[in-house]
Nucleic acid binder design. Sequence first.
DNA 1: ACTAGAAACATACAAACTGTATGTATGTGA
DNA 2: TCACATACATACAGTTTGTATGTTTCTAGT
Lengths: 196, 196
Amino acid sequence: MSRTNEERSSASRATLIKVGRRLFGQHGFAATSTPMIAEAAGVSRGALYHHFKDKADLFAAVVEAEFARLAEAIDDAATEASDPLEKLIEGGENFITAASDPVSQKLLFIDGPAVLGSGMLHAVDTDTTTNTLLIGIEEAQAAGRLPRDIPAAALTSMMSGAYDRAVIDGFGADEAGRLAIRHAIRSLWEGLSKLT
Amino acid sequence: MSRTNEERSSASRATLIKVGRRLFGQHGFAATSTPMIAEAAGVSRGALYHHFKDKADLFAAVVEAEFARLAEAIDDAATEASDPLEKLIEGGENFITAASDPVSQKLLFIDGPAVLGSGMLHAVDTDTTTNTLLIGIEEAQAAGRLPRDIPAAALTSMMSGAYDRAVIDGFGADEAGRLAIRHAIRSLWEGLSKLT
DNA sequence: ACTAGAAACATACAAACTGTATGTATGTGA
DNA sequence: TCACATACATACAGTTTGTATGTTTCTAGT
């Protein structure tokens, strides 16, 4: 059994990220040790440190993959609404659905900021989900469905914060609570549209 | 020099919390060791573990104190506006101002959720700043300045998320950016009021 | 006032973890 | 095929955490 170097390498990397996602998502960053990860991945700790600078670096890779996973899930559920505002609202609901996985939550919203720093995390985020939101807002503004005098970046931040919270709070809530949250978010959008 | 037991005890506790606030806020929870804290506080590690169950327990005390500090700062800046909606907006701006201290941010929004869990953190939060927001929203709804069909708790969550993000993103931004954020938040409120 | 005992604090210790340094094996290019 | 690089394993040193065990200072009952 002989594999090419790149095969070995990428297989190990992928396994470590996969296992890392599970363990980090389950026990949190601090409570997940590198011995645990290495053992679960069936490699030595040396291999882990060969592929990743340190524990946080592996975590960063996990988070990056998770953002990608999320972005893909959202794209897959892309809406067919013609109204840019409705598109925004539906896209947001898709985000909430996709990000409501407990593992996603812990990785992206709980441990992510603490381990990677909100700056570093933001850099990844901005390339994926938040960017989708920004573009949607800009389109809605161009179409006159959202007020043009609000800087799109600032509005994106605020709504992104609201969505993150929707996911976090929605986790512990019952069906009625989750419905209330969606209603509240929709109202935020609709209220904004009244300002145009 | 002889002090009563309670004097000794509360003095040590207070010092540990004070020093903990500085160090946790500066280097973060993970990068702050209990030896560092004990030395800076001028006590032994044994004293720390006498007063607090573990490192996270001290951190929890720091966070609790920080929420209290914040709530007080907001109360002190209480507005005189008569319109409940305007009161909400001004109260929010006071929150942003008070929470924009870098140490507050790291403690409450970055490390807090990861160390204490968003649940535990939420329990403290709900007793202070978020509760203020909830009450304000309910009053505005009662006065017909916000739509009554949105559950107040859900709306509180969303706006609280937006405010937290306002603080976090406002930190790195320039004056224009901070202004834009305040404008965006005000627009959210005003939009909602148009739905009544 | 004196003395058990509790509370406040200090010291010592064991286990665990992180990151690095060093060693080995497997693939690769000349 | 041979020198080298890459992928991985093992060994180690330094820190950290929480606990167990001392020591000192106060408190309460007689």
